[in-house]
Design a binder for these strands. Structure first.
Length: 694
DNA sequence: CGGCACCCTG
DNA sequence: CAGGGTGCCG
């Protein structure tokens, strides 16, 4: 019987839920035209008419033909051209040796949207509003705090000594010259760094915040105050960086008093000088040099997590490395927290979970499984920040290729350009932290659990919950998005550094520094955190793994390591995680086989009739298994993989291949190639907010 | 041999 | 979901 040829375009599909959705939906629609659908007799789930501009072609030879590994054809063209033109141009500009697509270019990821947005802005980073009056930071606070510093010196020495063996800290890199020792290391991640450091990002936060401030009627002073705080934080970050860098530079000799003196002198210098942006070249040349020198050695390792983890470790013990990593994360976390705090205040009217989608059709996940009109934004919306774009057309297209001409999304999806902050990144903090003085709060934290509360990688394991220094709850998944650079990276902070600091803020900074200088508490705390995080996998990890299964059926152990950063991977833990996924697959394949056999019994002939939709029983079973509570929106890509799996099983069973004891292996091989990229949000232990609720 | 995947069992 | 067994692979 003549079949409708199908174009699966799987290389796009399985990596990009949105695209895949369109393709399969389209396919399904066509199938529905040819013959009634298997289960539910309605038309296309979206109620859309059948688009007819996809050039279908026979694909996988299900009906007995031999099937290659790829099993799909890859050419599928839609209109309008605007979207696909960009795809094509991307393809042309991104020659991949293996012919694989860059998974990032279709997904409506934060990165993409952000790129769009950034390209919409102008590229300058200096703004008048960022250069307020430079005369409010002239207090000589070294005098003010001299005694205090003296008193702290011993402790500072102590921590410096303690950190003398720690590897290179993380510092937002700016330049790499002038440090041959670390040049090689930096090279590896330089590309990524460059990408993260792009000026437009600074621009975006800056302008956006400014625009918001103005729009919302927030007083300029208030805004500037916040910026000042950011500035202070940044200064403190620099101090930390230098503090890390110094022991490294002097690692031949003992962490000397000289190092200490330098650091303290630096501190004094900063406190004692205006931080006038315009004139910092003179007064801060020394600092800047030092800062920049410290960058190459510090930047390389953690901001690009992959592959560099071990690069800085020749002479370090694993414990030192672990401590270093933890410290690095804390730094990132603090910056993130500060930015969140500022944004929260600058954007006070956006506590609404989806404030910039007021009339968006993406509002609900379909509990019934039936597609909602906003399916476009559904697939990744929970995980990837939606940063609106001036070019709403492209933004929409990114989220869903306009393969459905009648899709009424465009007008509804338009957003105000100023509504940029990615609200899908929770800005959830306790009220304490939301207070105006985040530094005081940080200090406050420091008394019990300095920084520990900010650890992004701590899963609240039972042991942790009982710790006296139990962290205040602070969630921010802004951090650690390797492939989704948020607009709030250190570059932004840097851009705000041209602000003068007030006396009180300097005092706060001092206090903060003091808080950080409790070495004994601090170090032991970090070690405890580290050890605690290593012990076992928790139910939260299991749930996370299950959700990850929607994206990856065959994760490698190395991939798992990158997504379970709060787990210290022993052989046992690794095996357990691997085993989990093995169990997941087992259940998955059992269901697939079951339904495939059922379809065979029902005398279905065309494998392509077997489409797993959200309202199919098979999906329901899978969803219950992997997504109990239905609090995570299953990506469409999973439906596609499930459909293909089902079809493969169906074809095999129908062809009688199941008489072969190893008849499933070819299917496994096929499915194993359909893993898609797991959203970066999973890298954060706080990422899927659903995980923390359950 | 270790690591991994699959299978079977409880 | 974990344990244990088997088989494959580098």
């Amino acid at each position: 019987m003549p079949r409708t040829p199908i174009c699966f375009a799987h290389d796009l599909m399985h990596k990009h839920a949105v695209n895949a959705t369109v393709t399969l939906r389209d396919v399904r629609s066509r199938i529905n035209l040819v013959q009634p659908p298997v289960s539910n007799g309605e038309i296309d789930m979206n109620g859309n008419p059948i688009a007819d501009h996809c050039d279908y072609r026979p694909t996988s030879g299900h009906a007995g033909g031999q099937k290659g590994d790829t099993c799909v054809e890859r050419d599928c063209f839609f209109s309008p051209a605007s979207y696909y033109a960009s795809i094509i141009s991307h393809l042309l500009s991104q020659p991949e040796p293996n012919g694989e697509l860059d998974p990032s270019f279709l997904l409506p990821s934060s990165q993409k949207t952000e790129l769009l947005f950034q390209s919409a802005g102008n590229g300058t980073c200096s703004r008048e509003a960022s250069s307020p009056s430079p005369d409010c930071g002239l207090i000589n606070s070294s005098q003010f705090h001299n005694e205090h510093l003296q008193a702290k010196r011993a402790r500072v020495e102590n921590i410096i000594r303690g950190m003398s063996l720690t590897p290179n800290p993380i510092v937002p890199g700016i330049q790499v010259e002038g440090d041959q020792n670390h040049l090689e290391k930096v090279k590896g991640s330089y590309r990524e760094n460059k990408r993260k450091q792009r000026v437009p990002q600074q621009q975006s936060l800056h302008d956006i915040s400014l625009a918001r401030a103005g729009q919302n009627g927030i007083q300029v002073e208030e805004y500037l105050q916040l910026k000042k705080q950011l500035h202070i934080l940044q200064q403190q970050l620099k101090q930390l960086q230098e503090r890390f860098a110094q022991p490294h530079e002097l690692n031949d000799s003992s962490p000397s008093q000289g190092s200490m003196e330098k650091t303290l002198g630096l501190l004094k210098e900063k406190f004692g000088q205006s931080l006038d942006s315009g004139s910092q070249g003179v007064s801060s040349g020394y600092r800047r040099d030092r800062f920049c020198r410290s960058i190459p050695k510090t930047r390389g390792s953690e901001w690009s997590e992959k592959g560099t983890r071990t690069s800085d470790s020749h002479s370090l013990t694993s414990e030192d490395r672990a401590l270093s990593e933890i410290l690095k994360r804390e730094l990132i976390q603090v910056v993130t927290q500060a930015v969140d705090s500022v944004l929260k205040q600058v954007l006070p009217e956006s506590p609404d979970p989806q404030p910039h989608l007021p009339s968006s059709p993406t509002v609900t996940a379909s509990s019934t499984g039936r597609e909602f009109t906003g399916a476009a934004a559904s697939a990744s919306s929970k995980w990837l920040p939606k940063i609106s774009s001036h070019k709403s057309t492209i933004s929409v297209a990114t989220e869903k290729p306009p393969a459905f001409p009648s899709y009424p999304i465009r007008s509804k999806m338009e957003r105000k350009p100023c509504q940029v902050p990615p609200v899908n990144y929770p800005l959830v903090m306790t009220s304490e932290v939301q207070g105006n003085s985040i530094f005081s709060q940080m200090l406050l934290c420091g008394q019990n659990s300095p920084w520990g509360s900010l650890s992004p990688k701590m899963v609240p394991s039972p042991e942790c919950l009982d710790r006296p220094w139990r962290p205040i709850k602070l969630k921010s998944s802004v951090m650690r998005h390797q492939r989704c650079p948020t607009p709030y990276k250190s570059a932004e902070i840097e851009s705000l550094a041209s602000l003068p600091a007030s006396n009180s803020e300097l005092a706060e900074m001092q206090a903060l520094m003091d808080g950080m200088y409790f070495p004994s508490i601090h170090i032991s705390f970090l070690y405890h955190q580290h050890l605690a995080s290593a012990e076992a996998l928790t139910p939260g990890h299991l749930k996370k793994a299950k959700l990850m299964f929607f994206f990856s059926r065959y994760p490698t152990s190395s991939l798992l390591k990158t997504y379970f950063l709060d787990v210290q991977f022993t052989r046992c833990i690794t095996s357990q995680l691997i085993k989990w996924f093995s169990n997941f697959r087992e259940f998955y394949y059992i269901q697939m086989e079951k339904f495939a056999r059922q379809a065979v019994l029902e005398d279905l002939t065309d494998p392509s009739d077997l489409i797993v939709t959200r309202d199919s029983e098979l999906f329901r079973i899978l969803n219950v298994h992997y997504n109990k509570g239905n609090d995570f929106e299953v990506p469409d890509g999973f439906l596609d993989v499930a459909s293909l799996t089902l079809q493969e099983f169906f074809s095999a069973v129908r062809a009688g291949k199941d008489s072969d004891p190893s008849w499933k292996k070819p299917i496994y091989k096929i499915i194993s190639k359909l893993d898609s990229e797991i959203p970066d949000a999973f890298k954060s232990s706080t990422c899927p907010k659903e995980l923390n609720q359950g």
